[in-house]
Amino acid sequence: MLHRYLTPEEQQRLIKAASLPADILARRDAGWLDVLLLSGLRITEFSLITVGDATNALQSKYLFIPKERRKGGKTDHRVFITAPLRAALKKLITVHCEMAGTDRPLADAPLVLSRQHCGTAMSARAFQLRFKHWVVVAGLPSDASPHWLRHSRAMNIMRNSEAADPRGIAKEALGHASIASTGVYTGVLREELEQALTQTDASTSRRVSTAALRKDFDKRS
């Protein structure tokens, strides 16, 4: 059973936790949390995205991830820009401009800026630490990591896609080299297991024997 993902309710709690504060760092974090959840990208891939990459994605409807930036470095990948993902990318560009103090950001500037060194990208470690912060605020599993958002994207597709082959859709969306890698998402869901066991232990019904029914009948006769 795959358990390293967030349920739809947990996803909402995470995004809401980061969206409530009005400070710019919280708005930045809410933006990249949304993008990761809507794209299924790995942290390393995402941390290398530039303003130019995001701008081109808004125009072409696809966010291009060259193989040089991908795990294994074997194939290029592209992410389709849905309406929610478009909104999240625009939010990040806006936050980038505010943090950089400019209306005309450089195309090769990192999309998500570090708060400590303005003009430089957030490191993978910084993403992990900020994610942990919001996990605590949202009251989510303490062992959650940014990679859970990639798994969550796949699970969302498996739950909600009306395609004939949702596993194939998840494979393409995440850029898996083999369909076998996507097979893990067809297992029992964490919430399904919890619900089934809760229902099992909450049940008070017991099998009634024919003899017991006869005895009850005789009493009432």
Results as ranks from 00 to 15, higher is better:
Asp23Val: 07
Asp23Tyr: 13
Ile24Ala: 03
Ala26Leu: 04
Arg27Gln: 09
Arg28Glu: 01
Gly31Gln: 01
Leu33Arg: 00
Leu33Ala: 07
Asp34Pro: 14
Asp34Tyr: 11
Leu37Glu: 05
Ser39Val: 12
Gly40Trp: 02
Gly40His: 03
Leu41Asp: 05
Arg42Tyr: 00
Ile43Gly: 15
Thr44Cys: 09
Glu45Ile: 00
Glu45Tyr: 00
Phe46Ala: 12
Ile49Val: 14
Val51Glu: 07
Val51Gly: 12
Gly52Thr: 01
Gly52Tyr: 01
Gly52Phe: 00
Asp53His: 06
Asp53Ser: 07
Thr55Cys: 15
Asn56Lys: 11
Asn56Ser: 15
Asn56Cys: 14
Ala57Asn: 02
Leu58Lys: 03
Leu58Ala: 01
Gln59Cys: 15
Ser60Arg: 13
Tyr62Trp: 11
Phe64Tyr: 09
Ile65His: 13
Pro66Ile: 04
Glu68His: 05
Arg70Asp: 08
Thr75Gln: 14
Asp76Leu: 09
His77Ile: 03
His77Lys: 02
Thr82Arg: 08
Ala83Gln: 11
Ala83Pro: 12
Pro84Leu: 00
Pro84Tyr: 00
Ala87Thr: 09
Leu89Pro: 02
Leu89Gly: 08
Leu92Ala: 12
Leu92Lys: 03
Leu92Glu: 08
Leu92Arg: 05
Ile93Asn: 09
Thr94Phe: 13
Cys97Gln: 08
Cys97Ser: 07
Glu98Trp: 00
Ala100Phe: 01
Gly101Ile: 05
Asp103Trp: 06
Arg104Asp: 11
Arg104Trp: 13
Pro105Phe: 05
Pro105Ile: 09
Leu106Pro: 11
Leu106His: 04
Leu106Lys: 13
Ala107Ile: 12
Asp108Thr: 13
Asp108Glu: 15
Asp108Ala: 13
Ala109Met: 05
Ala109Leu: 08
Leu111Phe: 03
Arg115Pro: 07
Gln116Val: 12
His117Cys: 14
Cys118Thr: 13
Cys118Phe: 15
Cys118Trp: 13
Gly119Leu: 07
Thr120Asp: 10
Met122Ser: 06
Met122Gly: 02
Ser123Tyr: 02
Ser123Val: 03
Ala124Trp: 05
Arg125Met: 05
Gln128Ile: 02
Leu129Ala: 10
Lys132Val: 07
